[in-house]
Amino acid sequence: MLAAMRTFELSPADRFTFAQRAAVLSAAYADYFVPLWVNAQQMEAMDQIYDVDARRSVVAHAGREPIGMALLSLRGPRGWISAVGVIPAWRRRGAARAMLRRLLENAAQLGLDEVWLEVIEENAPAAALYRELGFSAARELLTWRYPADGDLLPIPRELLQPAPVERALAHFAAWHGQPPSWQREEPTLRHLAARSSAYELWMEDALAGYCVVGERPDAISILDIGLNPDFGPVKAGRTLLQALAHRFRGRAFTMINVPADDDLSRALAALRFTVTIRQWEMRLPIIAR
Rank of each mutant, 00 (worst) to 15 (best):
M1W: 04
M5N: 02
T7L: 06
T7W: 05
E9P: 02
L10P: 04
L10K: 02
S11D: 14
D14S: 03
F16G: 01
A23W: 12
A23K: 08
S26I: 11
Y29W: 15
F33M: 12
F33A: 13
L36H: 07
V38S: 07
M43D: 03
D47I: 06
I49G: 08
D53C: 11
A54I: 02
R55K: 07
R56D: 14
V58G: 00
V58T: 05
R64G: 15
E65T: 08
I67F: 03
A70S: 15
L72R: 05
S73K: 01
L74S: 08
L74C: 05
G76P: 00
P77R: 05
S82D: 08
S82G: 13
A83G: 13
G85W: 07
V86R: 06
V86W: 10
P88C: 10
A89C: 13
R92H: 12
R93H: 03
A98Q: 03
M99K: 01
L100Y: 03
L100T: 08
R102V: 00
A108T: 12
Q109E: 15
G111K: 01
G111R: 00
L112V: 11
D113K: 09
V115N: 09
V115D: 04
W116I: 04
L117S: 06
V119T: 10
E122P: 09
Y130P: 04
E132T: 14
R139Q: 12
R145C: 01
Y146Q: 07
A148P: 06
D149S: 09
G150I: 01
E158L: 02
V165T: 05
R167W: 07
R167T: 11
A168L: 07
A170F: 02
A173E: 10
Q178T: 11
P180Y: 06
R184S: 12
R184F: 09
E185M: 10
L189W: 13
L189F: 13
A193G: 05
A194T: 11
A194M: 10
S196Y: 06
S196D: 14
A198M: 11
E200K: 02
L201E: 07
G209T: 09
C211L: 13
C211V: 06
G214S: 12
R216W: 13
A219W: 02
S221F: 04
I222K: 02
L223T: 12
L223H: 09
G226N: 14
P233D: 15
A236H: 13
Q242Y: 05
A243L: 05
A245G: 05
A245I: 00
F248H: 15
F248D: 03
F248A: 02
R251W: 04
A252Q: 10
F253N: 11
M255F: 03
V258K: 10
P259Q: 01
P259T: 05
D263W: 04
A267W: 04
A267R: 01
L268R: 07
A269M: 08
A270C: 09
R278N: 10
R278E: 06
Q279Y: 00
R283Y: 02
P285Q: 00
R289F: 00
R289Y: 00
